[in-house]
């Protein structure tokens, strides 16, 4: 059985602020798990708790069924929200150092650094100081720092923040590949479309509690039915407002995204649309992750 990261009933408060309020979820190996929540929901505190950087008031973090200790953490890779590297240190030396701190020997760390720098397309910057690199390349080095010791679990806090599309694709590709190799990957992001593309499952938290979670496909098919209807001459779906049991989720370029109550008949909606004009599109669609997210938080 592949190991699983389990967060069980985590509690932590900072003064009057409750950061974690009985949070529980799991990250199975071989999956990319998206970790979502509004600002201040407790995502960073949760990730820090995995690495023992936050003292929990209650609850437990387990790996492979056992409480996590220093030994286990050495086999994890971490990319914190606020990037952290020695600015004046050479890229290669930095990765060697971090690799060795995670247990690699000197030749092993050197080989792994070289491999990751090549994989991320910055092998020519091995002797450069971090402060001389562009933001995107610094981000790549930071990712390499989290991966250099070939961790079993990779935890990344906002790894794509501030990256251009090419950088996002490169990091996304690496994470997917690592999950395919059997690693557990947990990453937080506010870019919901990106999470939807990359992740097999998500955990959504708010006020330190899990409010939704599961496989992205299952979440997409849960909840109310969604219709996308396009009526000629209608830009904002005004016709749908008078249909009982229908809510307009959004209107974009003449296509209205409608959410139907459980009792609403889709035929009735079609008839209302045809009455409003010529219907050029009428299709059922799955829930977007952004909708899952919004609904979970309401």
């Amino acid at each position: 059985m592949t190991p699983v990261l389990e967060l069980v009933d985590l509690h932590r408060r900072f003064g009057a602020t409750i950061a974690l309020d009985g949070l529980s979820f799991a990250v199975p190996s071989g999956q990319v798990v998206g970790f979502l929540g509004p600002n201040g929901a407790g995502k960073t505190t949760t990730m820090r708790a995995v690495f023992g950087l936050v003292d929990l008031e209650a609850g437990e973090v387990r790996w492979d069924g056992r409480p996590i200790g220093a030994r286990e953490r050495r086999r994890f890779g971490y990319m914190p929200e606020e990037r952290g590297l020695y600015r004046g240190m050479r890229v290669g030396d930095q990765l060697d150092y971090l690799g060795r701190l995670h247990g690699l020997d000197a030749p092993g760390a050197r080989a792994a650094s070289t491999r990751w720098l090549e994989r991320l397309g910055i092998a020519d910057r091995v002797a450069s100081k971090v402060e001389d690199l562009s933001h995107g390349n610094q981000q790549r080095v930071q990712l390499a720092a989290a991966l250099v010791h070939d961790p079993e679990l990779i935890v990344l806090d906002e790894p794509m923040a501030g990256l251009d599309p090419a950088g996002i694709d490169a990091i996304g590709e690496v994470l997917t590949e690592e999950a395919r190799r059997g690693k557990g990957v947990l990453f937080s992001s506010h870019q919901l479309d990106l999470v939807e593309d990359l992740c097999e499952s998500v955990s959504i938290i708010d006020h330190g509690r899990l409010v939704a979670g599961g496989l992205v496909d299952e979440l997409a098919h849960q909840g109310s039915r969604r219709l996308v209807v396009r009526v000629e001459g209608d830009r904002d779906g005004a016709w749908a407002r008078s249909v009982p049991g229908v809510t307009i989720s959004e209107s974009d370029g003449g296509a209205s995204r409608l959410v139907l109550d459980a009792t609403t008949d889709s035929d009735a909606v079609l008839r209302a649309a045809m009455a409003a004009g010529r219907v050029t599109q009428f299709s059922f669609e799955r829930r977007r992750l952004s909708e899952v997210f919004r609904e979970a938080l309401t």
């Binding site: 820090r48 953490r73 990319m79 914190p80």
Partner: peptide, 9 residues
């Protein structure tokens, strides 16, 4: 913030 990376291990 490099300390957060270091303290993770």
């Amino acid at each position: 913030r490099v300390v957060e990376v270091l303290l993770s291990t």
